[in-house]
């Protein structure tokens, strides 16, 4: 891929930023605890983080590490093109459990909003004040290797613009994120 300025992967409780291990924890740790520990390691003061579903937390953290060196001007018109496989299935399943039983019926708007996979883009956009083009696409997990190239091809480049491109997924207690920062 052309013009890659930064790369991050988060998987197996290990964060690799620009090719180097930045943070890791034992794989026996529950995922959400791992996300919280990474949040604390980054010394972020952003309490909204704790309201997010696991998919949004994962994308938020990956974006945080890649985008923190950029200025507000760099970020304002940035493009965000992300893909995932299992959509918002984690929140979908939780929400379904709140509406299946008449004696135990408690759907909440704060959970329902996370039953859309693009909410992670909204969270990143709010955090970094990014107003640019954004797109959330779904793809088979078998297509993992080619989806980032596919997203890269879809971007219409304008001069001196940044783009955040990546894949993230959260399903059945397994997660992964692989994000790239691209500059035109």
């Amino acid at each position: 891929m052309r013009n890659v300025q930064g790369a991050i992967t988060i998987r197996n409780h290990q964060v690799i930023l620009q090719g180097e291990i930045l943070f890791q924890r034992d794989q026996s740790m529950p995922n959400v605890q791992f996300f919280s520990e990474l949040y604390r390691e980054l010394k972020l003061a952003y309490p909204k983080f704790f309201k997010m579903d696991p998919l949004a937390k994962l994308g938020f953290l990956a974006a945080e590490l890649l985008l923190s060196p950029l200025s507000a001007e760099d970020k304002e018109e940035m493009k965000i093109f992300l893909a995932c496989s299992h959509s918002s299935i984690e929140s979908d399943t939780m929400f379904q459990n709140t509406i299946s039983d008449e004696s135990d019926y408690y759907p909440s708007p704060s959970l329902f909003v996370y039953t859309l996979p693009n909410i992670v883009i909204g969270e990143i956009a709010i955090r970094h004040k990014i107003y640019g083009e954004n797109s959330l696409q779904l793809t088979s997990p078998l297509n993992f290797n080619s989806i980032i190239k596919t997203l890269h091809k879809q971007i219409k480049w304008e001069e001196n613009r940044y783009a955040l491109i990546g894949y993230l997924d959260y399903y059945n207690d397994k997660y992964e994120a692989e994000f790239y920062l691209i500059h035109s």
Partner: peptide
């Protein structure tokens, strides 16, 4: 064109940004 409000995950922007 596609954009984002960078404002709220469920509420539309008050300024239509």
């Amino acid at each position: 064109a596609v954009t984002n409000d960078a404002n709220h995950i469920s509420g539309p922007s008050r300024t239509g940004e």
